[in-house]
Design a protein around this nucleic acid. Structure first.
Lengths: 225, 225
DNA sequence: CGGAAACTTGATCGAATTCAAATAAGGTGG
DNA sequence: CCACCTTATTTGAATTCGATCAAGTTTCCG
């Protein structure tokens, strides 16, 4: 079996597919909760998620944590590693994880010979930047209800684009602690908001999956236009 | 006179200098407060600030505004325009402005023949991403005092790197409304925080310039480590 | 089954917002 | 250069959204 077959076959706007030009490679694995990368340590390549979820975050000296993004299968873990030799963020596995690494050098030389790969990579970087800009706006100017509704909708859209959602249901491995750290809230308040969403018939979270029960209303609550 | 001479001669980690390889070009100008670019309208090139300040922002349908970055002389206005044909943010002149545009095509072909330019551009994009990640953390996990202290320190550092600060003093064309929209606060609360900083002997804002009176203490208040 | 982690719920607190009004600063035409 | 008008800033009082504190309760694993 050729690797990264999963990476290659993934579709969707953010899916990273190299085509068959790269050599076979073995994948790496990590268990749920494991720290994949610690901020400011050296990296020599770019990782792509093959299976499972991860997230990037910044931790302050006093323990405050901000989650910057959730990484799904097909996502590039650290786009900036192509240029930088260390990352400014840490990365942790949210579920059991399978991912593979592309060395800086092979990727850069590939991009020189294959303009398509360059364009694709550039596009991923731009999307990442645009999503981060949106997150800044969420945290700076939106209410708790809006932030959480938008997080749910964004995850649903990203999973849907990869064919990883069944209608209105999709896998949801996040703990409320993760939602809190991604939205700049406390776990207690996240619990209250999720509870109110549940009572209002907007969403339902059972086990490790989430079902949207009233998409229109959830969109309305998110105040997105 | 060759243009963009100002762009070319600017130093500092974020200063964008093309070298003498690009043809002369005339610059464009805008008055303070003028909207340079409206989100989602087409763009055909990348702008670089030659003189004056600008800022990028996202505006919600109901008037809430989030400022994403302040742009100083030498800064690239819209790095993503190299790849995208429209921006997801708007750009407004903070002071009277002079800037020049590089077409997508000339820039891309230049990057192909001059790897140095590519590296420099990539580096600017990465710095931009890293600063935005920091901003997310500021808005999600830091207090009002910390956010404002960090904004002042960041501007001082950026201006210092360009030789645009005289010791502890530097030009400061922001209104409190801009500080508020950049830090996710209200103008009223910004006034209170700035007032307390002033009373504590940390900073002083007179006319259009800011002086840091107690750098160590301002750093301590910012809780940066 | 048992123990730990995650979630829920209530009560209280607090940082920042909102509302309101006064004062200061800035810009413009006469 | 001044008078006037608009926009900023300051300050106080009341309010609110979300945080914190403190138990319960449920869920999840081993």
């Amino acid at each position: 079996m050729r690797e990264p077959s999963i990476c290659r076959t993934l579709a969707g706007k953010s899916g990273f597919s190299f085509g068959p030009t790269l050599p076979d490679r073995s994948h790496q694995t990590a268990h749920a909760g494991q720290l994949i990368y610690r901020a400011n340590e050296p990296v020599d390549g770019v990782d792509v998620i093959c299976e499972g979820w991860a997230f990037t975050f910044i931790m302050l000296f006093d323990g405050r944590r901000q989650i910057l993004s959730f990484l799904l299968p097909g996502d590039v873990v650290s786009t900036t590693a192509l240029v930088r030799d260390r990352l400014s963020v840490s990365v942790q596995a949210l579920t059991d994880l399978r991912y593979c690494r592309f060395s800086k050098l092979e990727l850069r030389s590939l991009m020189e010979t294959e303009p398509k790969v360059f364009d694709q990579y550039a596009s991923i970087c731009v999307e990442e930047k645009e999503e981060t800009d949106q997150l800044v706006t969420d945290l700076g100017r939106r209410t708790a209800d809006e932030r959480i509704a938008r997080l749910v909708l964004a995850l649903m859209a990203r999973l849907g684009a990869r064919g990883m959602a069944n209608g209105e249901s999709f896998p949801f491995p996040l703990r409320q602690r993760h939602i809190a750290d991604a939205t700049g809230l406390t776990p207690v308040h996240v619990s209250r908001v999720i509870g109110s969403f549940r009572n209002a018939g907007l969403i339902e979270i059972t086990g490790r999956s989430l079902t949207v029960r009233n998409l229109d209303e959830l969109r309305r609550v998110s105040s997105t236009r």
